[in-house]
Design a protein around this nucleic acid. Structure first.
Length: 721
DNA sequence: GTCCGTCCCATTTTT
DNA sequence: TGGGACGGAC
């Protein structure tokens, strides 16, 4: 066990103050790269080794499983073990509490967890049963969004139906109750339930709340800025007795507002806990001063924030590079070229990350890297546990534990095809309704009554045998169960035959699935099948990201939070894309986009390369694009090689214009200026939106980067293209 | 019941 | 642009 003083060696003054905080609510406002994980882990180690706090008296919440694992590892390195300590995401901690106490409020102990896709399927099924077709206004996803909001806000199905405003609310109100019933029938909880039902438990059973909050002398929360209202209440209740609530966060890195995170939680911490103390960590140990200056300048444009200035003892470092390319192929090519150049200069592929706003942007980048043989890893996209072949296997396993899970049954009953298609399922469904049995039980009943005869039903009978045989194995090692399942299904063979094009990848996923199960069996506290299924539902793709592999990392800016790389590319810096404004342009949304950009910038240790294109292909609107307003927010003296708005240099590359590009190039001079792209000596590139008068005498209204509009005389502009 | 073609939909971010 | 859902033909 490390001596007390050793734990705080090398900490700066505010860090040490936070670690040694005597008790009561504390908010640590920790800027990017300011060592917040170190503070959290040192704090826990200090509590254990110096303050006689026992591990089981500590509960710590993180945002990802990966962060939890890392925290556990680092604490173990300091104090030897984390045995008994609760370190996990809000959702996994909810699972833990509900597995123990759920039956007290009518939740089956071994409930299964429905992920987003499962939720969507449930809603679709309900709409189908209601005889409702596609509705542009009320798509399954939109309905689910309303239901999720309602659940989080504690609104019941009846209330939602009663207070419905507009057709979407009304439809959601109708579906909500049926949705909850369907989940209950399948013994399933969704993501929201894991938090909300835990809260319900604590509210309904003060004795349980009391015993838990008495146990947890210290409650710690990482990434507090990403909490939602329900999560904050959970923290408050669990910390209710001892009030040692230690939260770490950065209001400038709140990027999950769209899924219910409330950045004002962190702004209001001191109101919620009037005796709260605040420690600010502003010294950054990651990035060069140039990068920090840029990040500070950008985030200063947000109004709704606490206000922090990052600083570093590091050298200024190289300037930030901004390159504008013709289109996304050229952009990808540029990234590839810069990486190659960096490697020649002694860097390794693992030193690079390419960050983008939307997953769709990875395609061009992947293409360029693949063609050049540069190894890369893609984080996100279709996550591992969402892949069809993996979900099929998970559905089988789920069905072993939960015969009542009709969703899982529907998914696998004809995988691989065994003559149980739509017609068969229809009949089975009817029988199930009449008897009130789950689909699987109805099938078993048919088998027992000897109704599954003949070649026609051979497949169905085989499925019955398979499920019954496997069920006998559920107590065994999960790797064994998974292997047996795949073997008996001849699943690899099926994949190879049915989809030769993707078979290799899918088989690899199946193998990784088995490997993952084996690793889980070794590592997990609770190596049961239900433990494995819970983890599979709660795991994110970032959690699986390979550590230190010699590969370029490609991911969204969201996925990059908490990570750092020597060289970072932020691509696609165009108006409409980053900031992404297709959904909303209201100021609060724009501030979140800016925080996201801030997160992206502060991932870089040494070098930052920003790129934008002049032509962007998108599914909805393809066409000429404008540089992102965020670029204009970086002080010109920190940038190089760019058509910096403040300097107005002409871009060097000419775009390969395509049909969707503005008409300017083809049009004879002297007709209309509207729609043309031009370059202004002072304001930089812009697009003409209005015109008064004609020719060089014309008065133009031009929109520049950042959406700024100015009136300009035509004779003061040079045509860009 | 399966295969293949067409059409239509969606793409923000994910525990 | 691509992938998934649906419908028609074998």
């Amino acid at each position: 066990m490390a001596p007390n003083s050793e734990l705080t060696t090398g900490l700066n003054e505010p860090q040490e103050r936070a670690v040694r905080h005597p008790g009561g609510p504390l908010l640590v406002l920790a800027g990017a790269g300011s060592g917040k994980t170190r503070v959290l882990t040192s704090r826990i180690a200090w509590l254990i080794s110096g303050q006689q706090v026992r591990p089981e008296e500590i509960v710590a919440f993180t945002f990802t499983n990966k962060a939890a694992a890392e925290m556990r590892e680092r604490i173990a390195a300091l104090v030897g073990s984390t045995q008994g300590m609760w370190v996990g995401t809000f959702h996994s901690t909810g699972v833990r509490i509900l597995r123990r106490f759920g039956p007290e409020i009518g939740i089956p102990r071994n409930f299964s967890i429905y992920d987003y896709d499962d939720q969507v399927s449930v809603v679709k099924e309900i709409l189908r049963e209601m005889g409702l077709g596609a509705d542009r206004e009320a798509t399954p996803k939109k309905i689910l969004g309303r239901i999720s909001d309602a659940k989080e806000a504690g609104v019941s199905p009846e209330e939602l139906a009663r207070e419905a405003r507009g057709p979407l609310d009304r439809r959601a109100g109708q579906v909500y109750g049926l949705y909850e019933a369907a989940l209950a029938r399948a013994s399933a909880l969704d993501f929201d339930d894991l938090i909300v039902r835990t809260l319900a438990l604590l509210r309904q059973r003060p004795d349980i709340e009391e015993s838990l909050s008495r146990r947890f002398r210290h409650v710690l929360v990482d990434e507090y800025q990403d909490t939602n209202t329900a999560q904050v209440e959970l923290v408050r209740r669990l910390g209710g007795v001892h009030r040692n609530i230690f939260v770490v966060g950065d209001d400038d890195q709140s990027i999950y507002g769209w899924r219910g995170a409330d950045p004002t939680n962190i702004l209001r911490f001191e109101q919620a806990f009037p005796d709260a103390q605040v420690v600010r960590l502003e010294q950054n140990y990651r990035s060069t001063m140039t990068i920090l200056k840029a990040a500070n300048a950008v985030i200063r444009h947000n109004r709704n924030r606490k206000g922090k200035e990052l600083w570093s003892e590091r050298e200024p470092g190289t300037l930030i590079e901004w390159v504008e390319t013709a289109d996304e192929e050229a952009e990808a090519e540029l990234v590839r070229g810069r990486i190659a150049r960096g490697i020649e200069a002694g860097l390794t592929t693992g030193d690079f990350a390419v960050l983008y706003r939307t997953n769709a942007q990875s395609r061009a980048l992947e293409g360029a890297l693949r063609r050049s043989g540069t190894p890369y890893q893609l984080v996100g996209g279709v996550a591992f546990y969402q892949r069809r072949e993996v979900k099929d296997l998970l559905a089988f396993l789920r069905l072993l534990l939960h015969p009542e899970d009709d969703l899982a049954f529907r998914r696998i009953c004809n995988v691989p095809p065994r003559g149980m298609g739509a017609t068969f399922l229809e009949k089975l469904d009817q029988a199930a309704r009449e008897t009130g049995l789950p689909l699987q039980s109805a099938l078993f009943q048919w088998a027992d009554e000897g109704r599954l005869t003949g070649a026609r039903n051979a497949g169905a009978l085989q499925l019955v045998h398979l499920l019954r045989d496997l069920r006998k194995l559920t107590g065994e090692d999960i790797t064994l169960v998974a292997e047996e399942l795949i073997e008996r299904l001849e699943y690899r063979k099926y994949l190879a035959q049915s989809e030769p094009d993707t078979a290799e990848e899918r088989v690899a996923n199946v193998n990784e699935f088995v490997g993952g199960a084996a690793a889980f069996a070794l590592r997990a506290e609770d190596p049961s099948l239900e433990g494995f299924l819970a983890e599979a539902a709660l795991i994110a793709d970032v959690d699986r990201m390979a550590e230190g592999g010699e590969r370029v990392t490609l991911m969204t800016a969201h996925a990059a939070k908490g990570l750092e790389f020597p060289v970072v590319f932020v691509v696609g810096l165009e108006e409409g894309l980053f900031p992404l404004t297709s959904f909303s342009t209201e100021p609060s949304h724009l501030e979140e986009e800016r925080r996201l950009f801030y997160v992206a910038l502060t991932r870089a240790e040494d070098q930052l390369v920003l790129t934008s294109t002049r032509f962007r292909r998108r599914y909805d609107l393809s066409g000429a694009s404008m540089p992102s307003r965020f670029l204009a927010e970086i002080p010109g003296e920190l940038l190089r090689g760019a058509p910096a708005p403040s300097r107005g240099t002409l871009p060097t590359e000419r775009p390969r214009l395509q049909s969707a590009a503005p008409p300017a190039a083809a049009e004879p001079a002297g007709t209309s200026w509207v729609g043309r792209f031009l370059n202004h000596a002072q304001f930089g590139p812009g697009r003409v939106v209005e015109q008064e008068g004609k020719g060089s005498q014309a008065k133009l209204t031009v929109e520049f980067a950042g959406g700024v509009r100015r009136k300009i005389l035509a004779r003061y502009v040079e045509e860009d293209f």
